[in-house]
Simulated scan of single mutants.
Amino acid sequence: MSEKKKSVLFICLGNICRSPMAEGVFLNMLKEKKLTGQWEVDSAALGSWHVGNGPDSRTMKTLEKHGLIDYKHRARTLCDEDYTKYDVIFGMDDDNMSELAERKPKKSTTRLEMLGEYDPEGERVIRDPYYDTRGDMSGFEKVYEQCVRCCKAFLDKS
């Protein structure tokens, strides 16, 4: 009998910056550790503005800069089924966490956690870089670094 896969869902406001960055980072870590078949990983949005679109070009440039060249994703919104499908749903900031808790159906079996709580450097909030100046990549680089630290710490505890 095969063991049930562990599962995580990363959430942010539009599913084009932070949550796909975290998903891409986590998938890459699983690939490096040869654990891909043991996990189900996805990301989604709280809002529907970008549904069907790929990640922000700055997200992709940041991932590619760090060697993650095969990541593909299309934005989707969080749905009620996600609250029973995933072991953990990660939010990126306090507003994400409030909305996740507010939307949580009674039948939910998932744990709601803030990804930044796993940061060994103690940076709880993963700030949305979407509205940064278009040429400024520093916010996306910071999100990447935070995702690497947090995902590694979470995976080490899993």
Results as ranks from 00 to 15, higher is better:
M1P: 09
S2A: 13
E3R: 07
K4S: 12
K6L: 11
S7H: 09
F10T: 06
F10S: 04
F10W: 06
I11V: 15
I11W: 06
C12I: 09
L13M: 15
G14Q: 02
N15I: 09
I16P: 03
I16N: 08
C17M: 03
R18P: 06
S19P: 10
S19N: 09
S19F: 10
P20G: 07
P20F: 10
P20C: 02
M21P: 04
A22V: 06
V25T: 01
F26N: 03
F26C: 06
F26G: 04
L27N: 12
N28L: 00
L30E: 08
L30M: 09
L30K: 09
K31G: 01
K31H: 14
K31R: 12
E32I: 05
L35W: 14
T36F: 12
G37K: 12
Q38P: 00
E40V: 13
E40D: 15
D42Q: 10
S43H: 09
A44V: 10
L46D: 11
V51P: 07
P55G: 01
D56T: 04
S57E: 15
R58Y: 03
R58D: 00
R58T: 05
T59A: 05
T59Q: 04
T62P: 01
T62Q: 03
L63T: 03
E64C: 05
K65E: 06
K65A: 01
H66P: 02
L68M: 15
I69S: 12
I69E: 10
D70Y: 05
D70I: 02
K72G: 00
K72V: 10
T77I: 14
C79S: 12
D80V: 06
E81Y: 05
Y83C: 03
K85I: 00
K85F: 02
Y86D: 08
Y86I: 05
Y86K: 00
F90S: 13
G91D: 13
G91F: 12
M92N: 07
D93F: 11
D94R: 15
D95I: 13
N96Q: 13
S98D: 15
E99W: 14
E99F: 12
L100S: 12
L100I: 09
L100C: 11
A101P: 00
E102Y: 14
R103C: 08
R103E: 09
K104Q: 15
K104M: 15
K106M: 14
K107C: 10
K107M: 12
K107A: 14
T110I: 02
T110V: 13
T110H: 05
R111P: 00
L112V: 07
L112G: 09
M114F: 11
M114I: 14
M114P: 08
L115R: 10
G116S: 08
G116A: 08
E117F: 08
E117D: 14
D119Q: 11
P120S: 04
E121Q: 11
G122D: 10
E123Y: 10
R124V: 04
R124T: 13
V125S: 11
I126Y: 11
I126T: 04
R127P: 00
P129H: 00
Y131C: 11
T133L: 09
T133I: 07
T133W: 12
R134T: 06
G135R: 07
G135F: 07
M137G: 02
M137K: 01
F140Q: 02
F140P: 00
E141M: 01
E141R: 02
V143D: 07
V143N: 01
Y144E: 06
Q146Y: 04
Q146N: 10
C150P: 08
C151T: 05
K152L: 03
F154G: 06
K157N: 11
K157H: 04
K157C: 02
K157G: 08
S158F: 00
